[in-house]
């Protein structure tokens, strides 16, 4: 009983992905957060590459290259430029209750694995559990978005969520049709640009990127 080497690597990369999601949850420096995001992208790209190699799905090589280009190079670079221009490079966020957030995160992971359990049983052993991991990292990124009070980390959380989804698409299902993947990548890229425009509009109007300023619209 031995698991093929490639599968072991994919599982390893999946766990790295999840670990990084946890690390992002507790990371307070914006700069480090972006670095973590780039590392997560790298893990994602590597796992896509291994899946492409082990299943001989040629279009997955394109996906892997696309991920490398977009998630490891372009998006982190864009974010770097943004925080440089906005002068929030060294911002440190005061996060309250990191232990509690971590505990909630663990609960989310258990929930995700439970939810994905019936599906994992269907899949042909190699990728068992990967959907659970993907869902868990999506939920962790969601948690990160909820707990953050600044605009840039929220957006990083948003992009990390996309990473989890992409992982589900490539590793658990061996890749969506290329046209769909290209469409998703385009949306993510355009989305990041629009977020960038937004940051400047927010700063111009509120003098900060703190979204606590933006809790005026309520039904009283």
């Amino acid at each position: 009983m031995s698991i093929p080497f490639t599968t072991q690597i994919i599982n390893l990369l999946a766990s790295i992905l999840l670990l990084i999601a946890f690390a992002m949850l507790s990371q307070r420096r914006i700069l480090s957060l972006i670095k973590l995001f780039a590392w997560q992208g790298l893990a994602l790209s590597a796992s896509t590459f291994v899946v492409a190699y082990s299943t001989a799905q040629h279009h997955l090589y394109y996906s892997a290259a696309l991920t490398l280009l977009l998630k490891v190079l372009i998006l982190p670079w864009l974010l770097h430029r943004l925080i440089h221009k906005l002068n929030v490079k060294w911002d440190v966020e005061t996060l309250i209750n990191i232990p509690t957030t971590m505990l909630v995160g663990i609960v989310l992971v258990i929930f995700a694995f439970n939810l994905a359990a019936p599906i994992s049983q269907l899949s042909e052993s190699i990728t068992r559990g990967l959907i659970g991991i993907a869902l868990a990292s999506v939920l962790l990124s969601l948690l990160m978005m909820i707990t953050r009070r600044k605009a840039v980390p929220q957006v990083v959380g948003f992009l990390a969520m996309e990473n989890g989804l992409f992982f589900a698409a490539t590793s658990a299902t061996h890749g969506m049709p290329l046209v769909v993947e290209l469409g998703i990548a385009l949306d993510v890229l355009v989305g990041t640009f629009i977020f960038g425009i937004f940051f400047f509009q927010l700063r111009e109007t509120f003098d900060s990127l703190d979204i606590t300023h933006m809790e005026k619209l309520k039904d009283d």
Partner: peptide
């Protein structure tokens, strides 16, 4: 570009 419209758009996004 009013504060309220930015907040609305951010929420929407």
């Amino acid at each position: 570009r009013t504060p309220a419209s930015l907040e609305a758009a951010w929420k929407y996004f």
